[in-house]
Structures are given as C-alpha cells and as structure tokens.
Amino acid sequence: MSWIHEALEQIEANKRPDGARTCAADFSTGDPATEPTALAAMALAAHGRDATAPLDWLVANQRPDGGFAVSPAHDESTWVTAVAAIALLSAGRRDAGEAAVNWLLHVPIYTLPVTPDSPYGYDTSLPAWPWTPGDFSWVEPTALALLAIQHSSRADDPRVAQGLRLLADRAAFDGNDGGWNYGEPRVLGADLSPAVVPTALVILAARGTDIDLTPGIAFLERRRDSMTSLFSLAWAANAAAALYGRDDSWQDALARSWAEAAASPTKEAGRGALSTALALLAAAEPANNPLILS
C-alpha cells in the first residue's frame, strides 16, 4: 500500500462521531479542533473523498462573529479562522467562508510606531494579521489570512496589499539562509534565522506578487532532504507543489518521512491529523489543492 493510500485511509477513518478531528495522534481523542478538521476536509476533498462531515462541523462551530475558535473549549475567534475559511470557500460553502473572511478583514491589530531607538529591525507600524485579536502581526497568520481572502470575493480588499507589504518587510537573512521566520528578521542588532513553515506559507501566499521569493525557495530546496519532521516537510512540499507541480524529489521526501515516522513511536505519535492532511494536500493534484492559488 502506498503511503498516500495509507494516509487517506487514516484520515478518513479516524474521526470523532461528529466528523471533527483533534490534534491527538489518533485524530479523535480529546477536544475537536478547527485546524485539523479544516485541513482534513481539504485533504479528503483534494483526493476525491467525502468531506461533508468535517465541513458540517466547521459550519456548526462557526462563531456568531464569523470567526472560529481553536476548539469549542476556547472563547474567541483567532487565526484558525483563516484555515477554516480556506476549507469552506474551496468546498463551495460560500456563506460561511465569506463570513469568516469578513471577520479576518475586521480583526483588530496592534502596531508600534517606528522610533529611532527601536530594538526591532523591521517596520513595527505595518498592520497585517495577528494570531489573536488585538495582537501584533506575524508572518504565519498573515500568510494564512492572505490565502483565505484570495479564495473569497474580497480578494481586492486593501488589506491584502498591507499584508503583502508586511511579508516583504519581514524577510529574514542570517548570512547563510534567506526566507521567513515567525516574523522577526532582526532584533537588538542580531539577524534571526529563517524557518521552514513560515517560509513555505509565504511562498504559498505571495507567489505571483512582487515579493522576491527566491531566497526562501532556495532555503527550502537545501533543507528538503534533511527535514526530519513530516509537519515541516509537508508545508514545504505544498510550497514546492505550488511552484513546480508534483515534483518527484518532494514526493519522494514525503514518502521517506512517512516511512521514518512508522519506525519511531515518538514520530508516529506526532504524525497526527495536521501533518497527515498537509502531506496529503502536497501529494494531491495541485489544481485540487486549496493551499495553491490558481
């Protein structure tokens, strides 16, 4: 059995009775959560499987403000709204998806004026998207929000340009590598290193824009065969799929990582719904992958 078939079987079968997935190793223990449920819905749909139940769960758990909380145990709409919006909009659940995007476009943001003695080596006055309402803007929630908005009817909203401006400003170079980290390229005079997941997300969100993605692409290429965790590799493989289609070298890396996880109880326990769904998306036909904008 190929790893793709095995992964599909797992993500289809391992679920809560309400159709949601959790962040646990078996996809179903503990509280249902928005992010794994949304990614599972995307992965199932991308491979032609029925995603009705997780999509229904998302709609049922949308908050009155249009946003999504991390889980029903949580009490505010957050960054996971973007992931849910991508799943809903790509599946044709337009009303719920547009409401989620509307929440994203109105989330309050905290900025800092730039001062001559600022310790931050980037423009702290730029607004984009925070992890939680009222917080500072960071790379990953911004990239996810941009992906969601570009699936919606609001793709020309002025906040898209603001978000791209922030991503351009936060590009990180540590002397060896270029790309993006969580969102601080330079602090207190020291360069911070790029990281795989934020770099992959920026490539997905900013492909086709004026932002120079070349250093980030090179960074991911250099790391491809040394990435040890499926979560990072899967995000990177999605970025690669957006750039090159289903490239053999990245597909081979996914297969290797999947097999390695089976040999380690720790890695196998960490291969939950998030990593599995992301890997399946990277292995899907790019036209069916909602993380890849056409």
Binding site: C23, A33, E35, V70, H74, T78, W79, V80, P130, W131, T132, G134, D135, F136, W138, E140, P141, Y182
Partner: peptide, 10 residues
Amino acid sequence: GAAYGWPRNR
C-alpha cells in the same frame, strides 16, 4: 500556542 500564538506575544 494554538490559543496564544507563536510567539505568545500577547
């Protein structure tokens, strides 16, 4: 982090 972000800047 799912509730407070990476970093937990809040």
